[in-house]
Design a protein around this nucleic acid. Structure first.
Lengths: 198, 198, 198, 198
DNA sequence: CATGAATGAGTTTTCATTCAT
DNA sequence: TATGAATGAAAACTCATTCAT
């Protein structure tokens, strides 16, 4: 029926899982885990309620699949081809811009990830991915400190300040206090460098 | 019944309401609004489930009362006797320290306020208090910018960056990555001044 | 309102639990565990569906409470004041009659107990009561065999034959092939004695 | 595909139906009708869930087909070449042994038949077969009573006692209290004759 | 006033059945 | 013909709210 249907089953198959994940992402980001009823996800995904349980063992499994998928995606996008030998200023700029591009391309993802970071329903594997990203960032900071270009304070503190500031911009965008575009992120970047530089 | 009861009913009255608010605060902060059952709040407060409905019309009314109470408290604590004529650096320091003291004195409050900022169940009045605090901060920033001591960028951006950084420290404390004490806040303060200063 | 209401709360309290157990007994006996929906039990008991979960943690907990209650009752009724020193013939007669009276007084109980003996949802404690009754019966048989009045075969075999025959009569009554009264049981008693006597 | 396919389609056809019936038998015997999910039967049978509905209109139709098949089989096996002219003692022995052989050859069948005897989903035709076996047994008993070798009581009573005793042995085997072999059945046979003989 | 037992609407989850392939 | 993904109706269970005491 579809002329160039080269991978008919495969496409339809994966599509349904993806469509459920996409619907769940948006709803979980907006209403939280407990505030989102499974049938609502089903309706938004355009599938039957029972169908969700063919792809995910439970609502908890769904939220964890979502968490792992996007935390992994974020990790990959931030760390891929990272300029290991570049200077600290350049590295900072790369990470900041990559984060900004990520949140703009995937509007609900960061909200979702932040909101569900604490949930008791988030399992060990989900947290493991979280830690890998954290360790990557601390590694970059330590190296820059060794070079003497960052403030010689607890790397944890520097990381949390910059990350907090980044999330602040994101939230202001979401709440309409700043434009939803690269612009506020780029405007904030030099200030945030001042935050950490020696 | 109480012989020399100077404020008999009133005291008992208020106590019960406060005890409910305190229980709700902790539970809402830890488990979210939808994740917290009203009978659980009652149990933690040591009152009957029905009693909650003598003090609050509904679960939503409870969460809004809580939100307004603490957002108002925060507003008062930050703005009371504010050194209007002091320099920008001093004013920054005062606000930062007051915020830090507030979150350390009321461990669950800020978590609660941040978590419930978005909720669809948060009513107009709750948001109004929110705005007063926001406007106060923007005012302080504008004045400092006029004096030429802050970066001449969108005040909204500066506010959101500093506030984000502050929340970052708070979260790191909560998650055990930084010590739960004034120390990390004081350590962060100069860096955050660098973030905004010209 | 009730003139001699000496124990109003207590009576109402216990009543509800008992009323649920009574409704569940009949339905579980007729339709089995999986064939009986909790709301159906609620309707028959004249309570809300949620009420059942105030008294029993789960449907499984309900069926086990029922099982233990009645297996315990049966054990008590069969073994209470048992004529330990009487002859085997007399003891046989006593047990047989007590069983018959029990099933006639509690029409659904034995059906329920037999039907749910195998269920995977029957817990360890439930089976423990079962075993006590079994051991009692084997003890009586052993003693009678030692006296030489019963066939010198595996007591397990004798027990299972007589018990099976008893259940046969019960089933025939239930299915309308025999009268629902003491009569068929009394008619069967001498035959069943022949079954086991030397 | 199969080169020397003498009965190709038919064999495959029947095989699938039989394989479904065999899977259903075991599951229904172990978990009951309502406790057994159709997809589980399909999985055990090694067919697709939809396939079951090509052979049986519904789950009820499946259980009834199963019931009729095996009740008919039992009827045939018990009554085939029955020694009409033999003495009552011999006839009793034949029936008893045939039943014993049947339950040992078809371990789940009797359990299934007993368990589903009452079910509301068992239809009229299923019960009709049941009755033919019952009538056969009553006929044998009546004749033996006329000869004066059985107790002159309600044939229904004698039948139910012996049948109950037989089921008792079967259950004891299933539950591990007696060996799963002909032995306990043969040991029980003389006792059960005592149960009914004059 | 305070309570907590009771409830039914709503939640998560299962499953008999269908149907496109 | 055989399949198994899809479904929605119904199951078990939870919880915000009420109300008799």
């Amino acid at each position: 029926m579809a002329p160039p249907a080269l991978l008919p089953r495969a496409s339809t198959q994966g599509d349904k899982r993806e469509v459920i994940l996409a619907a769940a992402l948006e709803l979980f980001a907006e209403r939280g885990f407990h505030g989102t009823a499974v049938p609502l996800v089903a309706e938004k995904a355009g599938v039957g309620a029972g169908t969700i349980y063919r792809y995910f063992e439970s609502k908890e499994a769904l939220v964890n699949a979502l968490y792992q998928k996007w935390k992994g995606e974020l990790l990959a996008q931030v760390t891929a081809n990272f300029p290991q030998t570049a200077g600290a200023r350049e590295q900072f700029s790369v990470i900041w811009r990559r984060l900004a591009e990520f949140v703009l391309e995937n509007p609900h993802v960061y909200t979702f990830l932040e909101l569900h970071h604490h949930g008791s329903y988030v399992d060990a594997e989900s947290r493991a991915i979280e830690n890998r990203l954290h360790d990557f960032a601390v590694g970059v900071i330590r190296k820059a400190q060794a070079e003497g270009v960052l403030k010689p304070v607890d790397p944890e503190l520097l990381l949390t300040l910059v990350h907090g500031a980044f999330i602040g911009v994101l939230r202001a965008c979401r709440e309409g206090r700043l434009a939803v575009s690269l612009e506020p992120f780029l405007a904030a970047e030099p200030s945030c460098w001042d935050l950490v530089r020696r």
